[in-house]
Structures are given as C-alpha cells and as structure tokens.
Amino acid sequence: MDNSQNTIISSLNFPDGFQEIETNISGYKRHMILASALKMGLFDHLEEKGVLTREEIVTSLPMCGMLSRSYLNALVSMNLLIEGGDKYQNSRISQNFLTKKSPYYQGDLILGNSKSGSRWDLLSEAMQSSDGMAKTPGPGPSLDHLNTLAQRVIQGEAQALTTWISDLPGFSGMRKMLDIGGGHGLYTIGICQINPDMKGVILDQPHVTDLTKQYIQKYEMENRILSKPGDIRTEAYKPEYDIILISHLLYKFRNDLDEIFRLVSGGLTENGILVSNHWFCSPGCLPSQDPVNELERSLQSAGHPLCHPEHFAELFEKYGLSCIRTGTIETANGTSMLHAAQKGKL
C-alpha cells in the first residue's frame, strides 16, 4: 500500500522527464489511428474515389461524424492524407504503402504489430519464458504473421536475395529448386520469374500451404510452383534439386544443424547449391545501435540469431559441400548473411 494519504496534493511538484514517456505513448496513439484507418478501408476508398469532402467520407464509410474532423486532420498531420478546402485525398506515402492494389502494400505488417497473438502482443510472455518464445495456439506461425513477413521482405530483402541467387554459377541452367520453410513463397516466386525454366517446390507446415498457394496464384505461378506440406527433419530428400534454399528457419534448430545439413544435402543434384539466408550475431555478441530492432530480430529468430558462421563451412565440408560464395544483404531487421555451398566441388 502506498503512502498517498500523507501527500499534500497542492505541494506536489511534478518532476521533468515524463515528456519522454509521453512521446512513446503518442507513438502508440498514432499507430492506433493508422490501424483504424486501415481497418475501415479509408485509404482504399480514397484511392478508388479520389478527392472527397469530409461529409462524403463520413456518409460513405462507417465513420463517426463528431470525431471525423480531428481524426482526418490527425492523418493529415501524419502525412498520410492531403487536405485542401475541407477535401481529402491520399498522400503519395498512402498510395504506395497503404492501398491494397499497390505492390508495396504494408497494411498487414502494420496491423500485425498490434494484433492479438502477435509477437509484440505476447512480449510479456516471451520475456518471462526460458527460451524467448511465447506459447501460441496452433502448430506454428499464424497466417497473419506470415502475411506480415511477406510484406516485410518486399521492403528489399526478397529483391536482394533473388538477385544474389541469380548470380550464382550455372543459375541459368538450373531447372528445379526447393524452398524449405518458404511460407509466403516470395523468394521462390522471384527466382522463377528470373529463370523462366525453373520450377519450384515450397515445403512448409500443413497449415501454411493454403496461404502459400494464394501467393502462387497471385503471381500466376500455379504451373511452375508447388506448395507441399512437410518438415525439414522428416522430409524424404531425393537428389533432384539444383537449388535448396533455407531462409530464417534454422534459428529454432540451432542445436540440430549437423543433422539438418546431413538430411538436406541429400536433396541436391550433383553440382546443386544449398543457399542459407540467416541473421548472425555480431562478433562477441556486441549490442546493436538500434536495440528495438535488435529485440524484434531476436523475437523473429527464436530468441537469438545464429552464432559462429564459420561452423557452417565445417558442416558443408562434412556432408560433401563446398562453400563457393558468401555475402550479406540488408533486411528490415538488420544485415543477413548468405552462404552458397555446392555439392561435389570439394
């Protein structure tokens, strides 16, 4: 029990410093304003109709008239709407990132941050766990989470990774690839777009395959890409793939890498290439200059990025692979390290 009964309110001198906390609270309020606009379809509606008055917006959307002026002007202050003469239209930022017709749409990512069951929503549970992972219902990542990841990689990672792979030796002659834990499938889709003779198989948990098929259909790749239920540890690998891609999956198997590489190497053709795309902690596990981003990366990587990239080279060699190329690409959550290891090149 506090001792507030002994406090004289009129003598309280509220200390400086709360403004820093208020700034964080304001950020949350702005997020909720943006999220509500996405949920009611405001940006899509304006993109379809063009310039609308406040009254036209209120009557055509489920929007409270009494709150509409301050609400819309708040979106103007956030540079998401443009206002002139009490008429409103989307800003360029909203056109690019907040309308569903845009290839750069980020709405699911924005809504996913605050959605019930998201990694941020379950942060308290994760912080009190032993492994940094909050317990979630269902067999694995939610479909909302996978949609969020799809929009995040479109910020640049998917473009950088597919371009890097297309520059590997012999790429133009490759005909079949396997994407293990590929989820949204955008990496395989991008690679097949670059190589018109490539066919792909995306292996993921059974509850994910329907979502993967939606992305395959969206990019009209049904005749070239198959979404297949399976598990990296139990798949019956046959030497049929010219490329096997594993991207941001091995964090939760960090103690089983030897067995994982043994199994996966059996799926490569002679001269086939295994490509790994993962975050590694900095030498000495030094802290990042952006601790919030570092925390998000940890939440995405089963508590911690991988360590000791040199261990990959040892495992490659152990199972008949030779590391022919390494590199880095920038992702929304920091620098990711790439390894390409070829079978039969020892």
Rank of each mutant, 00 (worst) to 15 (best):
I191G: 01
T212I: 06
A236C: 07
G173K: 07
Y215I: 07
I165M: 14
Y237A: 13
I243L: 14
G266R: 03
Y241K: 02
L211H: 03
L257D: 09
I232N: 04
N271R: 08
T188L: 11
S172Q: 15
W164H: 09
F171H: 14
H207Y: 07
P239C: 13
S227T: 02
E270H: 04
N271L: 10
T269I: 09
L250I: 13
S227L: 04
D256Y: 04
H207C: 05
R175Y: 04
N271Q: 11
I243D: 02
I191R: 00
I191K: 01
L257I: 14
E270T: 07
T234Y: 04
F253E: 12
L249P: 01
K213F: 07
R175N: 12
I165K: 00
T269W: 00
N195K: 05
I232E: 03
L168Q: 08
D179N: 10
G183R: 01
I216V: 13
I244P: 02
K199T: 15
I165A: 11
D167K: 13
N271M: 08
E222P: 02
L226N: 06
L263S: 15
M174S: 13
F253Q: 11
G181W: 00
D197G: 13
K238W: 01
T188K: 03
M221L: 06
Y237E: 12
I244V: 13
M198G: 01
D256I: 01
T188I: 10
S172W: 07
G266N: 12
M221R: 00
K176I: 07
I260E: 09
M174D: 07
A236T: 08
M174C: 14
K218S: 09
H207V: 09
S172H: 13
E222A: 12
E220F: 04
D167Y: 11
Q193E: 15
T234Q: 10
D231C: 11
